[in-house]
Simulated scan of single mutants.
Amino acid sequence: MATEFAVEMDTMLSQTVARHVQVRALAMQHRQERTFLVASNVQKNPMKSQRFELDTPPGRPNLWMEVSFQLRFDEEREYLAVQQSFVGIFKDKESKEGLFHYDYERRKGDGYPDAHLQVYGSSTTWEEVLPGRPLPKLHFPMGGTRFRPCVEDIVEFLIVEGIVNPRPGWKELLNTSRDKFQANQLKAAMRRNPQLVEDFVRRHGESLGIKVTY
């Protein structure tokens, strides 16, 4: 499952905005539990993701993207779930400066939202409202565990705002890839909320052609 996810992510990035990206899945041991790292241009020692260059318009600054997912099995050990993820856009291969980064950490314990966006920039209004708290330090909530953005949303943002050059056919590819992510999220939500599913089928099943028996 991790390898399949890596292949899908590699295809999506390679056929939309990336230059020379390779997304791989590597198994690792974390707190006596087998987990998987799915990441861009991943290195083994130490095991971490690396950035890849984006296809930017002529005369514009080069930009680099980093994508990383840590996966583990769910409580039933039936499906892989994202434990942590990171997607960032930076000005070069090593710099901490860039445009933004998006993080997700399941059951994050420091009071910040599990899914959040941090933007590299400055604002005099923000500085007046929150003295001593620069804009890059703020964590903007992004939909929580089930309704968080996906990498496809970030790629689409880069394209529609003219930040990167897209490949032909990018729209259809992104939509197909995003539809799969959203379907998986919906299935996960249904598994965790069986009463909600039962109530929905009880109310709408017949109109949807579902035979309802009690």
Rank of each mutant, 00 (worst) to 15 (best):
M1G: 11
M1I: 10
A2K: 10
T3H: 12
F5G: 00
A6Y: 13
V7H: 10
E8P: 03
M9N: 06
M9G: 09
T11K: 15
M12Q: 14
S14F: 08
T16F: 06
V17D: 05
V17L: 14
V23W: 11
R24P: 02
L26V: 12
A27M: 05
M28P: 03
M28N: 13
R31S: 14
F36A: 04
L37I: 05
A39R: 04
A39P: 14
A39T: 09
A39L: 12
S40E: 07
S40I: 08
N41I: 03
N41P: 06
Q43W: 03
Q43P: 06
K44N: 13
N45M: 13
M47C: 11
R51C: 13
F52K: 08
E53N: 14
L54H: 05
T56N: 09
N62M: 10
L63D: 05
Q70L: 15
L71D: 00
L71A: 01
E75H: 13
R77S: 06
R77Q: 11
R77P: 00
Q83K: 13
Q84D: 08
Q84I: 01
I89P: 00
F90P: 04
K91S: 10
K93F: 05
E94D: 13
K96Q: 06
G98H: 04
F100R: 04
H101V: 03
Y102L: 05
D103P: 02
Y104T: 01
R106K: 14
R107M: 09
K108G: 07
K108I: 03
G109C: 03
Y112N: 11
D114L: 03
D114V: 03
A115K: 01
A115L: 01
H116A: 02
H116N: 00
L117I: 02
L117D: 01
Q118D: 07
V119W: 06
Y120K: 12
T125D: 08
W126A: 09
E128R: 15
P131W: 08
G132K: 01
G132Q: 07
L135K: 01
P141C: 06
P141Y: 06
M142T: 07
R146K: 15
R146S: 15
F147K: 09
R148L: 00
P149K: 00
V151K: 00
V151D: 00
E152V: 01
E152W: 05
E152I: 02
D153S: 02
I154M: 05
I154H: 02
V155H: 04
F157G: 11
L158N: 04
I159L: 09
I159A: 11
I159N: 10
I159R: 10
V160A: 03
E161N: 15
G169N: 09
G169E: 09
W170E: 07
K171F: 14
K171H: 15
L173R: 14
F181I: 05
F181T: 06
F181V: 11
Q182W: 10
R191L: 11
P194C: 04
Q195H: 10
L196F: 14
V197R: 01
D199C: 11
D199Q: 15
D199G: 15
R202V: 13
R203E: 13
H204K: 14
H204N: 12
E206N: 11
V212S: 03
T213M: 09
